[in-house]
């Protein structure tokens, strides 16, 4: 079995490439702009040290930024999201604690839990990202609409990917 570190690094590469090559070319109605690369942060193991969480958020954010040529925009949003991940996990903790050896995935904690988990974090990430992108309060509701629609689409893709990729394991 490949060790978790290299598996995560491999996943990061795949997600960045998928985001840059495929998803960035999708823009429906001028509103829907899915950002699926945040899946990387979502899927990091529970045991990940928190500083590593932030660093990984920074790294994946800046690699997206370098491709899109918006230095700092995705970085700040992803770091923000990585920062909030431990707190969200704490709030969404199931009755019995997170089991050791498990991962924050649909397979281990069920569809509802994963949906909530990804919905909250993706929404936070998108809110930060879109408001930084707009960088003004004038179009507050317009930006909010973009946030909501993109969040829905991103979460849809993320959940879908979980069904497709991890069904076979175990």
């Amino acid at each position: 079995m490949i060790n978790p570190v290299s598996r995560n690094i491999f996943r990061m590469f795949v997600l960045v490439l998928f985001q840059v090559l495929v998803l960035n070319n999708i823009q429906v109605c001028g509103y829907i702009n899915p950002y699926m690369y945040v899946l990387f942060i979502l899927l990091l193991p529970f045991e990940t040290p928190r500083w590593l969480l932030l660093i990984s958020g920074f790294v994946i954010g800046i690699s997206i930024d370098l491709f899109v040529n918006t230095p700092g925009m995705h970085t700040s949003a992803t770091v923000f999201m990585a920062f909030l991940r431990p707190y969200v996990l704490k709030i969404l903790r199931p009755h019995d604690e997170y089991k050791s050896g498990s991962y924050p995935r649909l397979y281990y904690y069920g569809f509802t839990w994963f949906l909530k988990y990804s919905l909250v974090l993706v929404f936070l990430h998108h809110t930060f990202l879109f408001y930084v992108e707009a960088f003004r309060m004038t179009f507050f509701f317009h930006t909010m609409l973009r946030v909501l629609l993109s969040t829905l689409f991103s979460v849809f893709l993320i959940v879908l990917s979980q069904f497709i990729i991890y069904r076979k394991q175990k």
Partner: peptide
């Protein structure tokens, strides 16, 4: 954790403000 978050966020905002013309 918090300190690192602030540092990284400051770096990215710094990048954002310096490298993006609109922002």
């Amino acid at each position: 954790f918090q300190i690192l978050f602030v540092i990284l966020e400051v770096i990215s905002i710094f990048l954002l403000l310096n490298q993006n013309d609109f922002q």
